[in-house]
Design a protein around this nucleic acid. Structure first.
Length: 430
RNA sequence: UCCUCAGUAGCUCAAUGGCAGAGCAUCCGGCUGUUAACCGGAGGGUUGCUGGUUCGAGUCCAGCCUGAGGAGCCA
Protein backbone atom coordinates (compact mmCIF):
# COMPACT_ATOMS: atom_id res chain seq x y z
CA UNK A 1 0.00 0.00 0.00
CA UNK A 2 1.40 3.42 -0.98
CA UNK A 3 1.54 5.88 1.88
CA UNK A 4 2.60 9.46 2.56
CA UNK A 5 4.65 10.43 5.57
CA UNK A 6 2.22 13.11 6.71
CA UNK A 7 -0.47 10.52 7.40
CA UNK A 8 1.73 7.64 8.48
CA UNK A 9 0.02 7.54 11.91
CA UNK A 10 -3.00 5.96 10.26
CA UNK A 11 -0.85 3.10 8.98
CA UNK A 12 0.59 1.81 12.25
CA UNK A 13 1.39 -1.89 12.07
CA UNK A 14 0.87 -2.05 8.31
CA UNK A 15 3.37 -2.67 5.56
CA UNK A 16 3.58 0.44 3.41
CA UNK A 17 5.47 1.71 0.36
CA UNK A 18 7.09 5.12 0.62
CA UNK A 19 8.31 6.86 -2.52
CA UNK A 20 10.79 9.60 -1.81
CA UNK A 21 14.39 10.56 -1.26
CA UNK A 22 17.12 9.76 1.22
CA UNK A 23 17.59 12.85 3.33
CA UNK A 24 20.35 11.57 5.58
CA UNK A 25 21.96 8.27 6.57
CA UNK A 26 23.61 7.03 9.74
CA UNK A 27 25.00 3.59 10.27
CA UNK A 28 26.37 1.48 13.08
CA UNK A 29 27.67 -1.58 11.32
CA UNK A 30 24.70 -3.90 11.31
CA UNK A 31 21.94 -1.29 11.36
CA UNK A 32 21.31 1.66 8.99
CA UNK A 33 19.22 4.65 10.00
CA UNK A 34 17.81 6.24 6.87
CA UNK A 35 15.96 9.54 7.13
CA UNK A 36 13.49 9.62 4.28
CA UNK A 37 11.45 12.49 2.90
CA UNK A 38 8.63 12.37 0.39
CA UNK A 39 7.51 15.99 0.15
CA UNK A 40 4.90 15.56 2.85
CA UNK A 41 7.33 15.05 5.72
CA UNK A 42 10.38 13.32 7.12
CA UNK A 43 10.62 9.92 8.81
CA UNK A 44 13.37 7.59 9.96
CA UNK A 45 13.57 4.17 8.35
CA UNK A 46 15.52 1.48 10.16
CA UNK A 47 17.27 -1.17 8.11
CA UNK A 48 18.86 -4.04 9.96
CA UNK A 49 21.18 -6.59 8.39
CA UNK A 50 19.21 -9.33 10.11
CA UNK A 51 15.95 -8.38 8.35
CA UNK A 52 17.04 -7.51 4.81
CA UNK A 53 20.04 -9.80 4.50
CA UNK A 54 23.75 -9.26 3.86
CA UNK A 55 23.46 -8.35 0.19
CA UNK A 56 20.72 -5.71 0.45
CA UNK A 57 22.33 -4.26 3.55
CA UNK A 58 25.70 -3.80 1.84
CA UNK A 59 24.04 -2.16 -1.15
CA UNK A 60 22.66 0.49 1.20
CA UNK A 61 26.15 1.22 2.59
CA UNK A 62 26.93 3.88 0.03
CA UNK A 63 23.63 5.56 -0.69
CA UNK A 64 24.32 9.28 -1.11
CA UNK A 65 22.20 12.08 0.27
CA UNK A 66 19.09 12.70 -1.90
CA UNK A 67 19.20 9.34 -3.65
CA UNK A 68 15.62 8.72 -4.77
CA UNK A 69 14.30 5.49 -3.28
CA UNK A 70 11.18 3.39 -2.98
CA UNK A 71 11.09 1.77 0.43
CA UNK A 72 8.80 -0.94 1.77
CA UNK A 73 8.50 -1.48 5.47
CA UNK A 74 6.35 -1.83 8.55
CA UNK A 75 5.11 1.28 10.39
CA UNK A 76 5.99 1.17 14.07
CA UNK A 77 5.24 3.66 16.82
CA UNK A 78 8.41 4.69 18.64
CA UNK A 79 8.77 7.28 21.37
CA UNK A 80 12.36 7.95 20.28
CA UNK A 81 11.21 9.15 16.85
CA UNK A 82 10.59 12.90 16.38
CA UNK A 83 7.29 12.26 14.56
CA UNK A 84 6.34 9.34 16.82
CA UNK A 85 6.73 6.69 14.08
CA UNK A 86 9.46 4.79 12.27
CA UNK A 87 9.59 2.37 9.37
CA UNK A 88 11.21 -1.05 9.71
CA UNK A 89 12.56 -1.56 6.21
CA UNK A 90 11.85 -4.83 4.41
CA UNK A 91 13.07 -3.72 0.98
CA UNK A 92 14.67 -0.72 -0.70
CA UNK A 93 14.85 0.10 -4.39
CA UNK A 94 17.07 2.86 -5.78
CA UNK A 95 15.31 4.96 -8.43
CA UNK A 96 18.01 7.56 -9.10
CA UNK A 97 21.50 7.75 -7.62
CA UNK A 98 22.94 10.84 -6.01
CA UNK A 99 26.58 11.52 -5.22
CA UNK A 100 28.38 14.46 -3.60
CA UNK A 101 25.16 16.30 -2.78
CA UNK A 102 26.12 19.95 -2.24
CA UNK A 103 23.94 20.68 0.80
CA UNK A 104 25.42 18.59 3.60
CA UNK A 105 23.95 18.21 7.10
CA UNK A 106 26.35 20.84 8.40
CA UNK A 107 25.85 24.57 8.17
CA UNK A 108 26.13 26.65 5.01
CA UNK A 109 26.27 30.34 4.20
CA UNK A 110 23.36 32.28 2.74
CA UNK A 111 25.05 32.95 -0.60
CA UNK A 112 25.94 29.30 -1.06
CA UNK A 113 22.39 28.22 -0.26
CA UNK A 114 20.81 30.91 -2.45
CA UNK A 115 22.89 29.73 -5.43
CA UNK A 116 21.40 26.28 -4.79
CA UNK A 117 17.89 27.39 -3.92
CA UNK A 118 16.45 24.64 -6.14
CA UNK A 119 18.02 22.11 -3.76
CA UNK A 120 17.78 24.17 -0.57
CA UNK A 121 13.96 23.91 -0.70
CA UNK A 122 14.33 20.17 0.02
CA UNK A 123 15.51 20.81 3.58
CA UNK A 124 13.12 20.50 6.55
CA UNK A 125 13.06 24.20 7.35
CA UNK A 126 12.39 25.40 3.80
CA UNK A 127 9.91 22.57 3.31
CA UNK A 128 7.99 23.78 6.39
CA UNK A 129 7.99 27.42 5.26
CA UNK A 130 6.66 26.59 1.81
CA UNK A 131 3.91 24.47 3.30
CA UNK A 132 2.88 27.32 5.61
CA UNK A 133 2.95 29.66 2.61
CA UNK A 134 0.58 27.33 0.80
CA UNK A 135 -1.75 27.26 3.79
CA UNK A 136 -1.78 31.06 4.02
CA UNK A 137 -2.61 31.41 0.32
CA UNK A 138 -5.31 28.77 0.60
CA UNK A 139 -6.77 30.55 3.63
CA UNK A 140 -6.79 33.85 1.74
CA UNK A 141 -8.68 32.35 -1.19
CA UNK A 142 -11.19 30.59 1.06
CA UNK A 143 -11.70 33.80 3.01
CA UNK A 144 -12.63 35.91 0.00
CA UNK A 145 -14.49 33.20 -1.86
CA UNK A 146 -16.55 32.52 1.25
CA UNK A 147 -17.54 36.17 1.51
CA UNK A 148 -18.85 36.57 -2.01
CA UNK A 149 -15.75 38.17 -3.52
CA UNK A 150 -15.09 37.43 -7.19
CA UNK A 151 -11.54 36.68 -8.28
CA UNK A 152 -10.88 39.09 -11.17
CA UNK A 153 -7.20 39.24 -11.94
CA UNK A 154 -5.56 42.39 -13.20
CA UNK A 155 -2.94 42.58 -15.96
CA UNK A 156 0.76 42.04 -15.39
CA UNK A 157 1.77 43.92 -18.55
CA UNK A 158 0.65 47.50 -18.06
CA UNK A 159 0.98 50.56 -20.31
CA UNK A 160 2.18 52.99 -17.60
CA UNK A 161 2.78 53.57 -13.94
CA UNK A 162 -0.21 52.80 -11.73
CA UNK A 163 0.86 55.31 -9.16
CA UNK A 164 3.78 56.96 -10.79
CA UNK A 165 5.83 56.86 -7.62
CA UNK A 166 7.96 53.76 -7.59
CA UNK A 167 10.25 52.41 -10.27
CA UNK A 168 8.88 49.98 -12.83
CA UNK A 169 10.48 47.19 -14.82
CA UNK A 170 10.21 47.98 -18.53
CA UNK A 171 9.79 45.14 -21.02
CA UNK A 172 9.83 45.26 -24.78
CA UNK A 173 6.29 44.66 -26.07
CA UNK A 174 6.73 43.56 -29.69
CA UNK A 175 8.66 45.89 -32.00
CA UNK A 176 8.10 49.41 -30.85
CA UNK A 177 6.16 49.48 -27.60
CA UNK A 178 7.41 49.52 -24.05
CA UNK A 179 5.23 47.84 -21.45
CA UNK A 180 5.83 47.76 -17.70
CA UNK A 181 5.40 44.98 -15.20
CA UNK A 182 2.61 45.82 -12.78
CA UNK A 183 3.43 47.19 -9.36
CA UNK A 184 -0.18 46.93 -8.15
CA UNK A 185 -3.54 45.76 -9.43
CA UNK A 186 -5.14 48.67 -7.63
CA UNK A 187 -6.54 50.78 -10.46
CA UNK A 188 -7.87 47.86 -12.52
CA UNK A 189 -9.31 46.43 -9.32
CA UNK A 190 -11.43 49.56 -8.91
CA UNK A 191 -12.88 49.07 -12.38
CA UNK A 192 -13.56 45.41 -11.57
CA UNK A 193 -15.34 46.40 -8.35
CA UNK A 194 -17.61 48.73 -10.31
CA UNK A 195 -18.49 45.75 -12.52
CA UNK A 196 -18.69 42.95 -9.95
CA UNK A 197 -19.21 44.61 -6.57
CA UNK A 198 -16.68 42.85 -4.40
CA UNK A 199 -13.55 41.56 -6.12
CA UNK A 200 -10.01 40.52 -5.43
CA UNK A 201 -6.93 39.97 -7.49
CA UNK A 202 -4.03 37.78 -6.49
CA UNK A 203 -0.84 37.76 -8.43
CA UNK A 204 2.78 38.77 -8.66
CA UNK A 205 3.81 42.41 -8.57
CA UNK A 206 7.15 43.97 -9.44
CA UNK A 207 9.12 46.88 -8.02
CA UNK A 208 12.38 47.96 -9.58
CA UNK A 209 13.56 49.62 -6.40
CA UNK A 210 17.14 49.07 -5.38
CA UNK A 211 16.05 48.13 -1.90
CA UNK A 212 18.50 45.98 -0.01
CA UNK A 213 16.79 44.90 3.17
CA UNK A 214 15.34 41.78 4.74
CA UNK A 215 11.82 43.01 3.95
CA UNK A 216 12.11 43.52 0.19
CA UNK A 217 11.84 41.46 -2.98
CA UNK A 218 11.69 42.82 -6.53
CA UNK A 219 8.97 40.27 -7.33
CA UNK A 220 6.35 39.54 -4.69
CA UNK A 221 2.79 38.31 -4.42
CA UNK A 222 -0.03 40.49 -3.31
CA UNK A 223 -3.72 39.88 -2.72
CA UNK A 224 -5.87 42.95 -3.27
CA UNK A 225 -9.58 43.09 -2.40
CA UNK A 226 -11.70 46.01 -3.57
CA UNK A 227 -15.31 46.76 -2.59
CA UNK A 228 -17.89 49.08 -4.14
CA UNK A 229 -19.99 51.04 -1.66
CA UNK A 230 -17.39 50.64 1.06
CA UNK A 231 -15.48 52.93 3.40
CA UNK A 232 -12.27 53.05 5.40
CA UNK A 233 -14.01 51.35 8.32
CA UNK A 234 -15.05 48.46 6.07
CA UNK A 235 -11.44 48.02 4.99
CA UNK A 236 -10.20 47.95 8.57
CA UNK A 237 -12.78 45.33 9.49
CA UNK A 238 -12.08 43.22 6.42
CA UNK A 239 -8.31 43.26 6.91
CA UNK A 240 -8.67 42.37 10.56
CA UNK A 241 -10.97 39.44 9.75
CA UNK A 242 -8.60 38.25 7.02
CA UNK A 243 -5.57 38.18 9.29
CA UNK A 244 -7.50 36.44 12.05
CA UNK A 245 -8.68 33.82 9.56
CA UNK A 246 -5.16 33.22 8.24
CA UNK A 247 -3.61 32.86 11.69
CA UNK A 248 -6.38 30.53 12.88
CA UNK A 249 -6.01 28.39 9.80
CA UNK A 250 -2.24 28.01 10.09
CA UNK A 251 -2.49 27.22 13.80
CA UNK A 252 -5.12 24.62 13.03
CA UNK A 253 -3.45 22.87 10.11
CA UNK A 254 0.29 23.57 10.22
CA UNK A 255 1.36 22.92 13.80
CA UNK A 256 4.03 20.46 12.68
CA UNK A 257 5.59 23.03 10.35
CA UNK A 258 5.51 25.78 13.00
CA UNK A 259 7.24 23.36 15.36
CA UNK A 260 9.97 22.66 12.78
CA UNK A 261 10.45 26.43 12.50
CA UNK A 262 10.56 26.72 16.30
CA UNK A 263 7.89 29.40 16.08
CA UNK A 264 6.56 30.67 19.40
CA UNK A 265 2.90 29.83 18.70
CA UNK A 266 1.69 31.70 21.78
CA UNK A 267 2.51 34.88 19.84
CA UNK A 268 0.19 33.74 17.07
CA UNK A 269 -2.51 32.54 19.45
CA UNK A 270 -2.71 36.12 20.78
CA UNK A 271 -3.74 37.41 17.34
CA UNK A 272 -7.48 37.86 17.88
CA UNK A 273 -9.96 40.62 17.05
CA UNK A 274 -10.22 43.44 17.86
CA UNK A 275 -6.85 44.83 16.74
CA UNK A 276 -5.65 48.07 18.30
CA UNK A 277 -6.27 51.15 16.15
CA UNK A 278 -4.72 54.59 16.29
CA UNK A 279 -4.62 57.62 14.07
CA UNK A 280 -1.42 58.89 12.48
CA UNK A 281 -1.64 61.85 14.90
CA UNK A 282 -1.65 59.52 17.89
CA UNK A 283 1.20 57.48 16.44
CA UNK A 284 3.31 60.61 16.03
CA UNK A 285 2.65 61.52 19.68
CA UNK A 286 3.84 58.09 20.80
CA UNK A 287 7.01 58.29 18.70
CA UNK A 288 7.81 61.70 20.16
CA UNK A 289 7.21 60.43 23.70
CA UNK A 290 9.56 57.54 22.96
CA UNK A 291 12.17 60.14 22.06
CA UNK A 292 12.39 59.44 18.34
CA UNK A 293 13.23 62.38 16.08
CA UNK A 294 9.93 62.23 14.20
CA UNK A 295 8.06 65.21 12.80
CA UNK A 296 4.38 65.30 11.81
CA UNK A 297 4.10 64.90 8.05
CA UNK A 298 6.78 62.29 7.55
CA UNK A 299 6.36 58.64 6.73
CA UNK A 300 7.30 55.91 9.19
CA UNK A 301 10.69 54.26 8.84
CA UNK A 302 11.49 50.72 9.87
CA UNK A 303 12.43 51.76 13.38
CA UNK A 304 9.26 53.84 13.81
CA UNK A 305 7.10 50.92 12.73
CA UNK A 306 8.87 48.58 15.11
CA UNK A 307 8.52 50.95 18.07
CA UNK A 308 4.81 51.34 17.42
CA UNK A 309 3.98 47.70 16.75
CA UNK A 310 6.01 46.36 19.68
CA UNK A 311 3.57 47.99 22.09
CA UNK A 312 0.94 45.42 21.13
CA UNK A 313 0.64 41.65 20.88
CA UNK A 314 -1.45 41.80 17.71
CA UNK A 315 -1.35 43.81 14.48
CA UNK A 316 -1.68 47.57 14.86
CA UNK A 317 -3.86 49.65 12.54
CA UNK A 318 -2.61 53.16 11.88
CA UNK A 319 -5.09 55.29 9.93
CA UNK A 320 -5.54 58.80 8.50
CA UNK A 321 -2.11 59.71 7.19
CA UNK A 322 -1.14 63.07 5.71
CA UNK A 323 -2.33 63.10 2.09
CA UNK A 324 1.05 64.32 0.96
CA UNK A 325 2.76 61.01 1.72
CA UNK A 326 0.02 58.81 0.25
CA UNK A 327 -1.04 57.86 -3.27
CA UNK A 328 -3.02 60.28 -5.45
CA UNK A 329 -6.15 58.08 -5.42
CA UNK A 330 -6.68 58.24 -1.63
CA UNK A 331 -9.83 59.99 -0.46
CA UNK A 332 -9.30 62.96 1.86
CA UNK A 333 -10.90 62.89 5.30
CA UNK A 334 -13.96 65.22 5.09
CA UNK A 335 -13.30 66.31 8.67
CA UNK A 336 -9.66 67.19 7.95
CA UNK A 337 -8.87 67.40 4.23
CA UNK A 338 -5.10 67.35 4.82
CA UNK A 339 -5.49 63.70 5.88
CA UNK A 340 -6.09 60.68 3.64
CA UNK A 341 -8.51 57.93 4.57
CA UNK A 342 -5.82 55.26 4.44
CA UNK A 343 -4.74 52.53 6.84
CA UNK A 344 -1.57 50.51 7.36
CA UNK A 345 -1.55 47.23 9.26
CA UNK A 346 1.71 46.81 11.14
CA UNK A 347 2.44 43.21 12.10
CA UNK A 348 3.71 42.53 15.62
CA UNK A 349 7.30 41.59 16.51
CA UNK A 350 8.74 44.19 14.16
CA UNK A 351 7.61 42.60 10.89
CA UNK A 352 6.38 45.90 9.50
CA UNK A 353 3.56 46.75 7.15
CA UNK A 354 1.66 43.73 5.87
CA UNK A 355 -1.47 45.53 4.67
CA UNK A 356 -1.92 48.97 3.16
CA UNK A 357 -5.19 50.34 1.88
CA UNK A 358 -8.07 52.73 2.36
CA UNK A 359 -10.95 54.55 0.79
CA UNK A 360 -10.53 55.74 -2.80
CA UNK A 361 -11.18 59.12 -4.22
CA UNK A 362 -14.62 58.96 -5.89
CA UNK A 363 -14.99 62.58 -6.98
CA UNK A 364 -14.03 63.35 -10.61
CA UNK A 365 -12.90 66.95 -10.18
CA UNK A 366 -10.75 66.26 -7.15
CA UNK A 367 -9.18 63.23 -8.85
CA UNK A 368 -8.32 65.37 -11.90
CA UNK A 369 -6.73 67.89 -9.60
CA UNK A 370 -4.65 65.20 -7.85
CA UNK A 371 -3.42 63.80 -11.17
CA UNK A 372 -2.19 67.31 -12.07
CA UNK A 373 -0.58 67.79 -8.65
CA UNK A 374 1.29 64.52 -8.97
CA UNK A 375 2.39 65.47 -12.49
CA UNK A 376 0.80 62.35 -14.00
CA UNK A 377 -0.23 62.15 -17.69
CA UNK A 378 -4.01 62.51 -17.70
CA UNK A 379 -4.48 60.69 -21.02
CA UNK A 380 -3.09 57.49 -19.48
CA UNK A 381 -5.76 57.67 -16.79
CA UNK A 382 -8.80 58.41 -18.95
CA UNK A 383 -10.19 54.91 -18.46
CA UNK A 384 -9.70 55.28 -14.73
CA UNK A 385 -11.45 58.64 -14.76
CA UNK A 386 -14.39 57.01 -16.57
CA UNK A 387 -15.11 55.14 -13.32
CA UNK A 388 -15.93 58.57 -11.80
CA UNK A 389 -17.84 59.76 -14.88
CA UNK A 390 -20.23 56.84 -15.10
CA UNK A 391 -21.85 56.14 -11.76
CA UNK A 392 -19.14 56.78 -9.21
CA UNK A 393 -19.61 55.30 -5.73
CA UNK A 394 -17.62 55.30 -2.50
CA UNK A 395 -15.27 52.34 -2.63
CA UNK A 396 -12.33 50.98 -0.72
CA UNK A 397 -9.81 48.19 -0.67
CA UNK A 398 -6.32 47.12 0.36
CA UNK A 399 -3.28 45.10 -0.62
CA UNK A 400 -1.68 42.41 1.51
CA UNK A 401 1.88 41.30 0.84
CA UNK A 402 2.00 37.52 0.98
CA UNK A 403 5.73 37.21 1.64
CA UNK A 404 5.73 39.61 4.58
CA UNK A 405 2.75 37.77 6.01
CA UNK A 406 4.56 34.45 5.63
CA UNK A 407 7.71 35.90 7.21
CA UNK A 408 5.71 37.13 10.20
CA UNK A 409 3.71 33.95 10.73
CA UNK A 410 6.77 31.73 10.35
CA UNK A 411 8.91 34.07 12.47
CA UNK A 412 11.63 34.40 9.81
CA UNK A 413 14.62 36.71 9.86
CA UNK A 414 14.49 37.38 6.14
CA UNK A 415 11.78 37.53 3.47
CA UNK A 416 13.95 35.63 0.96
CA UNK A 417 12.94 32.31 2.52
CA UNK A 418 9.19 32.90 2.05
CA UNK A 419 9.05 32.12 -1.66
CA UNK A 420 10.60 29.24 -3.64
CA UNK A 421 12.71 31.46 -5.89
CA UNK A 422 13.17 34.93 -4.42
CA UNK A 423 13.95 37.77 -6.79
CA UNK A 424 16.07 40.51 -5.28
CA UNK A 425 18.57 43.14 -6.23
CA UNK A 426 21.58 41.01 -7.33
CA UNK A 427 19.63 37.74 -7.23
CA UNK A 428 18.14 36.30 -10.42
CA UNK A 429 19.55 32.74 -10.31
CA UNK A 430 18.33 30.04 -10.19
C1' U B 1 22.38 55.27 -4.67
C1' C B 2 24.79 55.81 0.31
C1' C B 3 27.04 53.62 4.96
C1' U B 4 29.20 49.23 7.42
C1' C B 5 31.15 44.31 7.17
C1' A B 6 32.97 39.92 4.70
C1' G B 7 35.72 36.84 0.78
C1' U B 8 41.40 31.06 3.06
C1' A B 9 40.20 23.13 1.14
C1' G B 10 33.68 20.97 -1.75
C1' C B 11 31.16 23.45 2.94
C1' U B 12 31.65 26.26 7.83
C1' C B 13 35.63 28.68 9.85
C1' A B 14 40.91 29.46 12.43
C1' A B 15 45.95 31.28 11.52
C1' U B 16 50.52 38.26 16.39
C1' G B 17 53.77 40.53 9.11
C1' G B 18 57.45 34.57 9.75
C1' C B 19 56.21 26.19 8.04
C1' A B 20 48.55 26.72 5.07
C1' G B 21 45.24 24.55 9.90
C1' A B 22 40.54 22.23 12.21
C1' G B 23 35.55 20.22 11.97
C1' C B 24 32.15 18.46 8.41
C1' A B 25 31.75 16.36 3.37
C1' U B 26 34.44 12.43 0.12
C1' C B 27 37.29 7.58 0.15
C1' C B 28 39.06 3.21 3.40
C1' G B 29 38.27 0.60 8.17
C1' G B 30 35.16 -0.16 12.94
C1' C B 31 30.45 -0.16 15.59
C1' U B 32 22.80 -3.38 16.37
C1' G B 33 19.37 2.57 18.55
C1' U B 34 21.64 6.65 15.74
C1' U B 35 19.05 11.85 15.79
C1' A B 36 23.89 17.68 12.37
C1' A B 37 25.58 9.87 15.24
C1' C B 38 30.39 8.40 16.91
C1' C B 39 35.77 6.28 16.69
C1' G B 40 40.56 5.44 13.62
C1' G B 41 43.09 6.50 8.89
C1' A B 42 43.78 8.87 3.85
C1' G B 43 43.38 12.39 -0.12
C1' G B 44 42.14 17.53 -0.72
C1' G B 45 44.97 24.89 -1.37
C1' U B 46 46.14 30.17 -7.70
C1' U B 47 44.13 32.51 0.60
C1' G B 48 38.21 36.75 -4.80
C1' C B 49 41.18 39.76 -8.84
C1' U B 50 45.10 43.48 -10.14
C1' G B 51 48.95 46.30 -8.45
C1' G B 52 51.94 48.29 -4.30
C1' U B 53 54.88 48.37 0.66
C1' U B 54 58.37 44.68 2.86
C1' C B 55 64.11 40.43 3.58
C1' G B 56 59.23 38.11 3.87
C1' A B 57 51.90 39.39 2.76
C1' G B 58 46.22 35.10 3.99
C1' U B 59 47.58 39.29 7.28
C1' C B 60 49.42 46.10 5.72
C1' C B 61 47.98 49.92 1.51
C1' A B 62 45.17 51.28 -3.22
C1' G B 63 41.73 50.03 -6.94
C1' C B 64 38.28 46.52 -8.76
C1' C B 65 34.83 42.19 -8.40
C1' U B 66 31.26 39.37 -5.58
C1' G B 67 28.09 38.92 -1.52
C1' A B 68 25.79 40.19 3.30
C1' G B 69 23.52 43.71 6.87
C1' G B 70 21.43 48.53 7.27
C1' A B 71 19.46 53.49 5.29
C1' G B 72 16.16 55.71 1.79
C1' C B 73 11.47 53.75 -0.67
C1' C B 74 7.79 50.46 0.04
C1' A B 75 3.99 45.44 0.71
Amino acid sequence: MDAHIEDIARCEGQTVTLKGWLHNRRSSGKIHFLTLRDGTGFIQAVMSKQTVGEEAFTRADHLGQETSVVVQGVVRADTRAPGGYEIDVTSLEVVGESHDYPITPKEHGVDYLMDRRHLWIRTPRQHAILRVRHEIIDAVRDFFNGRGFILADTPIFTPAACEGTTTLFPVQYFEDTTAYLTQSGQLYNEANAMALGRVYCFGPTFRAEKSKTRRHLTEFWMVEPEMAYATLDDVMELGEALIVAIVERVLERRRTELETLERDVSRLEAVKAPFPRMSYDEAVEILKKEGLPFEWGGDFGGTDETVLSQRFDRPLLVHRFPSAIKAFYMKPDPARPELALGVDFLAPEGYGEVIGGGERLADLDLLLQRIKEHDLPQEAFEWYLDLRRYGTVPHAGFGMGIERTVAWICGLEHIRETVPYPRMLYRLYP
